[in-house]
């Protein structure tokens, strides 16, 4: 990128601690002041050992966790910026999906819907026309190699890997400006995983800002434009994958 695009996400001084009232009021630190910027078209992969705070960071941005201090500013598609930490719950709920997506390892329980319905519905929720959504959803499921025979069965009968692909398709059709990916391919076999990574790679080239957590370095290498290394709730390093990842490999 020659001229850096304006940041879609600006995280500064983000802290998160938990107070466990029922365990003697114990305080658990998860994030100790994180600064981070993700621009349009960037794929920032979070690296670091388990417990470093990667998932906590994604959840704080998504407001699944309430940050204890700091700031999370999202630039919306209309160009305006909004402080997510101050946003009333109902506005945050409305923002989710449309401007800010979160794809976890798991498909949220909606067992009565078919895979196609789930994906179409997600696209329509983000403002896409129903007719176009049908096409786009079919395309996403095809690209993720979900057997066509499974498109119209209840999602409850799907295997873990199949559900994960449905979840990924739903999270990425008509993608929001900022996509948070938390181990979205963890349950996939190599061939399907490959297809999924290709789909995710396509998002960035379409201008979506991605912040991800993958447990394998290979995925990061393929997808990330930048890697941010976390340890003990802090950012301890960052750089191009080609620079950062070999060090991590050694550390491992």
């Amino acid at each position: 990128m020659n001229t850096p695009a304006p940041p879609v996400l600006t995280v500064s001084g983000l802290e998160k601690h938990f107070v466990l009232h029922n365990v003697d009021g114990r305080r658990v630190e998860a994030l100790r002041g994180v600064d981070l910027v993700v621009r349009a078209g960037e794929h920032v992969a979070l690296a670091g050992s388990s417990g470093a705070g990667k998932s906590s960071l994604l959840k704080c941005i998504h407001r699944t966790y309430i940050p204890s201090a700091g700031s999370v500013i999202l630039r919306r598609s209309d160009g305006t910026e909004v402080e997510l930490l101050d946003l009333p719950d109902h506005e945050m709920a409305a923002l989710r999906g449309r401007e800010l997506g979160y794809v976890s390892q798991f498909l949220r329980a909606q067992p009565r819907r078919t895979p196609l319905e789930i994906v179409v519905r997600a696209a329509v929720q983000r403002g896409m026309d129903k007719a176009i959504a049908d096409e786009v959803a079919a395309d996403a499921l095809t690209r993720l190699r979900l057997d066509r025979g499974l498109w119209d069965v209840h999602a409850s009968v799907l295997s873990g890997g199949e559900r994960q692909r449905v979840n990924l398709a739903a999270g990425t059709v008509s993608p929001p400006r900022l996509l948070l990916l938390d181990e979205p391919v963890s349950a996939l076999d190599p061939a399907n995983r490959d297809a999924a990574l290709e789909l995710i790679a396509g998002l960035t080239s379409g201008g979506v800002a991605v912040l991800s957590v993958f447990h394998d370095l290979d995925a990061m290498e393929r997808l990330a434009t930048r890697v941010v290394v976390m340890a003990d709730g802090r950012v301890v390093g960052e750089g191009a994958p080609s620079v950062v990842l070999p060090d991590l490999e050694v550390a491992r």
Binding site: H21, Y65, D89
Partner: peptide, 15 residues
């Protein structure tokens, strides 16, 4: 306490 349902479930604050 009030909040987003996933937040209340994952990060409840009140004892």
């Amino acid at each position: 306490e009030s909040g987003l349902t996933d937040q209340l479930f994952e990060d409840p604050h009140h004892p």
